[in-house]
Amino acid sequence: MTLPPNTKRFLEEAGAIAQFTGRFFREVFRPRYEWSAFIQQCYMIGYKSLPLVGLTGFIMGLVLTMQLRPSLIDYGVESELPAMVGIAIVREIGPVITALIFAGKIGSSIGAELGSMKVTEQIDAMEVSGTNPFKYLVVTRVLATTFMLPILVLLGDAISLYGAYLGVNIKATTSFSLYYTQVFNNLSFSDVLPAFVKSFFFGFAIGIIGCFKGFHSSKGTEGVGRSANSSVVLGSLMVFIIDLIAVQVTDILGFN
């Protein structure tokens, strides 16, 4: 059976990513845990991303509120603005926007970092010196993205909700206490928990794709650039695909 070259390349890559993911799961439970490298990666990936995520989240909350207000006024439910914005941010906007920003910042940096290590043969050198490069480079980064993104999403949500509060107060006066009562009165566990769970998958996908692209970077500086670029593109795409799957799964489980 002959397949078109593009399809063949796509399937090859999908298989390679699957294999890479399988290797990750094999390595992650095997002893000799790289704790200090993991914490270092958490700091770099999580803490260092907070300003960016916070800023985008704040602007998103503010803008969303201002954009929604005219429509809600048309329907005569302006008072439901906090509830509406709260649900939108917590369920969808917060996780997805944060994951996209995260993919842009972290996906590219992982792809570039591992790619340059690959092309400068540092990874091969590490293997020679007896350190498991996969464990030291890939597992720590993927775990860090997996655990840090949900936390970034939570903080991003909080900042975003505060931005929305300011947005509500631009053309009306709502006390903060009434605002958060309205937001949390209209939220339920089925809004918060699926969003929280899916952000783990977003983080994992972004980490895995960044590492894969970097680890399998082609030779030369061009290869590094390409791997950085494609890890962002593919990571962002994966965020949307996982989001699509997540909404179906929560629907099947009856959380919607």
């Binding site: 999580g46 949390f184 566990f189 918060v192 929280f196």
Partner: peptide, 18 residues
């Protein structure tokens, strides 16, 4: 601090909803 504040927000929102 970063991790704890994130988790705190999660716990707080779950508590408020609960």
């Amino acid at each position: 601090l970063f991790t704890l504040s994130g988790l705190l927000f999660l716990v707080l929102s779950l508590y408020l909803i609960g």
